[in-house]
Design a protein around this nucleic acid. Structure first.
Lengths: 196, 196
DNA sequence: ACACATCCGTAACGCTCGGTATAGATGGAC
DNA sequence: GTCCATCTATACCGAGCGTTACGGATGTGT
């Protein structure tokens, strides 16, 4: 049995990308269904039929983010040395955070603080940030094992340190700071790596 | 002509402190008037008579924050050396961000991203963060002039760097990271100061 | 004691929110 | 060409939002 009935008139993935942009700029709570449907070019019933509800839509947009524009994070972990990994993370973050197509960090701006209704989203984002930090921590643990970092380095502390700098850059970007200024933050952070 | 009519039954400053706690935990948009009136122990008409509206209430709470729990920032600028200033900022931030009475950084969590209605608040917070950073920049400029920092230091870049670390710590604190872990971030940042 | 300015509480306002019932349009399967 | 599953669109729902009108309560100044 192939597909039956009237086919969908819009492209699901394109619509998700448009929704992602709205969530990016306004956060989860700040983005209203009216904002979303207008940006996506579809009506509310179509949105609900295709994506379930606002929360599921956000989660799907979030998945699309980490696999797409947010992919620089996982890509950076593949660099050969710990210094390359951290440098790549910080400079790629500076670029991504100021790219007009990918404004800011969804995991930070999405729902840092919110009302009761959005707390499951807030916790989801907290978990994602923690998971990314854990990925970085494991990469740095490997670097310690390989002698790429001093043997007495605490990979967990270093990962938290680098994560905090990236998140601080995200806050700066939300405040309108530009790419070159973010890269200078990265420069300064990298002037002592590893921070001994 | 002294005061006339029925005197107010609640303490304005105490009520402001209670409102501040709500804004702290839920952000500007996430805090509803019902949340606020319940926490403050007053009814809505009393709140509107005393504070104007939600936006003015937030601004008054914000003023009370910078003069009270947020005062560590200005206090840190009075330390004798640039290193003392930065160390005080980072360690005091670690303490303040994890103090149950002053949870997180209102300037970061208040309204990082939001809907249309709250964008004046968002811009106010952006301006406050920028103003704090400018205060720090001027303090570091003084340090350069005093020979306390290398003559080729860029005070603006350094101030942005330190601000980003503090804001990153605020995001970490919003994610549940504890005091000791935040202090380790401060430790790592201070291992190269100034970052040459 | 009286008058009045002010505050408190109930109850409602208009609006927007996220979400949906229903009816009409569309196009593939037979 | 007919059937019918599916999509689209209008119009609406109940709930919650920030805000306010109104009337009764309260204490001060005269």
């Amino acid at each position: 049995m192939a597909i039956m009935g009237r086919p969908r008139e819009f492209n699901c993935e394109k619509a998700l990308d448009l929704a992602l942009q709205v969530f990016w700029r306004k956060g989860y709570e700040g983005a209203s269904m009216a904002d979303l449907t207008e940006a996506m070019g579809i009506t509310k019933p179509s949105l609900y039929a295709a994506f379930g509800n606002k929360e599921e839509l956000f989660r799907k947009a979030l998945d699309r983010y980490v696999d797409g524009p947010g992919g620089y994070f996982q890509a950076a972990l593949l660099k050969p040395t710990a210094r390359d990994v951290v440098a790549s993370l910080l400079y790629e973050a500076a670029d991504a955070l100021t790219n007009p197509d990918t404004p800011g960090c969804l995991a930070v701006q999405g729902a840092l603080s919110c009302g009761e209704a959005a707390q499951t989203i807030k916790q989801e984002l907290m978990a994602r940030r923690a998971a990314s930090e854990a990925d970085l921590r494991r990469r740095l643990e490997r670097a310690v094992a390989e002698g790429d970092l001093p043997a007495d380095s605490d990979a967990a502390d270093l990962a938290r340190y680098v994560s905090a700098i990236m998140q601080g850059m995200a806050v700066q970007a939300a405040g309108g700071v530009g790419r070159d200024q973010l890269r200078k933050i990265a420069d300064l952070a990298l002037r002592n790596w590893p921070p001994l």
